[in-house]
Nucleic acid binder design. Structure first.
Lengths: 175, 175
DNA sequence: CAGTGATGGTTCGTTGAATGAACTGACTGG
DNA sequence: CCAGTCAGTTCATTCAACGAACCATCACTG
């Protein structure tokens, strides 16, 4: 999407959110960050996003306090992009949207499931654990599992491969 | 946003959802539908959206089963756009996004609040009613209230005016 | 029954953002 | 010194958004 001053006339929190998070690619970048992707090159390989757009979106998200840019080595200087608390709270948007799509447009066999790490139960549509008394599950306590169905043409980039290999705790680095 | 075949390589429900709902304007149209807007001209006036874009989005959303187009008079023939059950379920995405933005970027005094119609309590960030034992509140049981803060330049279109006048039950027609 | 206005679009030229390929620059390891 | 990696930037092309004008249908008015 694009911001557009037009949204400004709306004077509405939803519109303000969409200026940031409603832009093309942005929410997929955030999704990848939940999967544990942290580096420019990994986002790039997993998303098939133009390099310039990725650089632009990351900069915007850092400005907005959704990502934090942190140096993890000095020579050569390399930074990684980590979700801040503000970014992690977007789980309450990302998961319901994923779930809505899965319910209404998904195949019988889901490609991926999100489970409460503590008990292995699949999250309900609102992101809670039915087994554990319907408590809200923080993304840090969620495991992404690969479902039985395989995509027709599995992707070969390192991120996709790692995600297929084994269940993976959200927000933990992939590599 | 735009669909782009690129998202297709993602093979992910989130990406599929974003092809539809992540396009520029789409979620604001859905928001207005929750407010009770139903007619082309009212969406147009309230959103300041180019006419062609609005027509395109509405057609796409009807195709996707998010809106239903229903004739409400025959001469001249006039249709209104109503959220289907599938569309109403987007409340679980729209409200958390609104809430996220309100928490992180909102002013101290919110412009609008969403309250459980049964008891008048403001919804919590997950969309539940704290007073009523934390039950999920369906959008049909939500009232939109205008907060104490007034926008600097209040809009004059009929939709904005109606929304300011009095608390309003979501999904009920505005006029 | 011609003129005016409401409604819900479509058309089209212009602007601006996304795309993708090439290039840059800092560094490393052999 | 050379090849390779990583994280970008630059730039020409493509495609979607914009916005103004136009169109069609019908109702109402004088």
């Amino acid at each position: 999407m694009a911001l557009g001053k037009n949204y400004e006339g709306q004077n509405c929190s939803l519109a303000r959110a969409l200026e940031l998070v409603g832009e093309r690619w942005t929410l997929l970048i955030v999704r990848d960050a939940f999967y544990g992707v942290r580096r420019y090159g990994d986002f790039l390989a997993h998303l098939d996003i133009p390099r310039a757009v990725l650089a632009d979106r990351l900069a915007t998200l850092v400005d907005a306090g959704v990502f934090e840019r942190r140096r993890y080595q000095n020579s050569p200087p390399r930074d990684e992009y980590l979700l801040t608390d503000r970014g992690v709270e977007l789980w309450s948007v990302v998961y319901p949207l994923w779930s809505w799509s899965e319910r209404h447009f998904g195949d019988a066999e889901p490609l991926r499931t999100f489970r409460h790490a503590a008990c292995g139960t699949q999250l309900d549509p609102a992101g809670r654990c039915p087994t554990c008394g319907g408590v809200d599950v923080s993304p840090r306590d969620v495991e992404a599992h690969t479902g039985p169905r395989m995509p027709a043409q599995p992707r070969r980039d390192p991120v996709s491969v790692a995600l297929r290999q084994r269940p993976h705790r959200l927000l933990q680095p992939l590599f």
